[in-house]
Design a protein around this nucleic acid. Sequence first.
DNA 1: GCAAAGTTGGAATGTCAATTCCAACTTGGG
DNA 2: CCCAAGTTGGAATTGACATTCCAACTTTGC
Lengths: 211, 211
Amino acid sequence: MSASVKAEEPKEQRLTKGGRKTRERIIEAAAELMFHRGAGGTSIPDIQAAAGVSASQIYHYFGDKQGLVLAVIDHQTDTRLDQQRPLLDNLDSIEALREWCDRAGSRQDARGCEGGCEIGSLASELADGDQSARTRLVSAFDRWEGPIRSGLARMQERGELSERADTAALATALLAAVQGGMLLSQVRRSSTAYRQAVSAVIDHIESHLVR
Amino acid sequence: MSASVKAEEPKEQRLTKGGRKTRERIIEAAAELMFHRGAGGTSIPDIQAAAGVSASQIYHYFGDKQGLVLAVIDHQTDTRLDQQRPLLDNLDSIEALREWCDRAGSRQDARGCEGGCEIGSLASELADGDQSARTRLVSAFDRWEGPIRSGLARMQERGELSERADTAALATALLAAVQGGMLLSQVRRSSTAYRQAVSAVIDHIESHLVR
DNA sequence: GCAAAGTTGGAATGTCAATTCCAACTTGGG
DNA sequence: CCCAAGTTGGAATTGACATTCCAACTTTGC
């Protein structure tokens, strides 16, 4: 009866134990390569070699390259957020905010400031050209910003943060500082810009402290 | 005597009037395409069609694609900075800062928040893979940040800004807010994030006002 | 233990991109 | 006006890449 106009979703196929493992291996290899060279700069043969799989396996599990890119976005989002926990879920003090940001700065230093934010880089590359990718990136940033906002909201509920503070806007500003700071640091090969950017926003949040 | 190890620079060739014009046409077409699809996503044939030139002309004037990309970086830097003048050179009051930022927000709205920052997008794509591109991007951001810092420094010299304010760091933070805000806005297709990001940093700067 | 479903290898296909070549045409200076 | 240098068109080359195919192999549910 209903003409299914959009039946593009690769109807969830049943995966064998090994299949799940292969799928994961592909995603991880692709994520790593795409982090360094971008999605467009990473070819299927590249991924084949890195993951040790054949082309048919990639197409079997992801349909096409775009499908793999979408999976990589989700994977990076999950991975990055998990890496930041439990800090990310307890951003309800100035000190917690500073430590959380500092951690990302150290991570950046540790890799010599090569590469920016795993999510931000994909966002910059894919936001305009790939509608479905953009949608997933919106949700990636929402999932990231949410915990920040929640932490600030808790501070406000507790009466630590002025009622006049717009916690949602502050959370957005902090995430933007992270992204912009990462970009400048990546280009300059120094985490200084990142640290100054987040520090300015956290100082600003601090100015809303009651007392 | 001195063995010139690096003689890679395409020794400035003399350009005829028409040649200069063709060169410019190529750069502009390339810049436009690369803004929308990225440098990697823009092919030479694409540029040929957009600029109405043949392949040999592109290679004649730029050597190879990377040469063209470098020229595009410089062109976008010059163009963007010129577009922001004279505002950019007079960022020595809170109001001036706000208006300057607001202008970029309106520009973003005007294009439906498609595309991010002309320089930032190239930076994100090229910072890791192309050493010479990264170098030019460093100078692009320096040329951008400089006037911001100068404006803040003037405010400080005049005694309007607290002596404890680190004007260099604040300038970096503001530029980072612009970049990060642009990215979030591009992904969310709404300039709100950009406006909140820059607003937070300018509010912070404002908190350093004397009086 | 068997058939259906899931996995895998590897070659084949078709497209398109970057770059090179070279011959022809135009312009500037002396 | 004439030559050297600058410009241009268009075809040819080479290589890579996304994707498809199909036959063979393995796992799972009954």
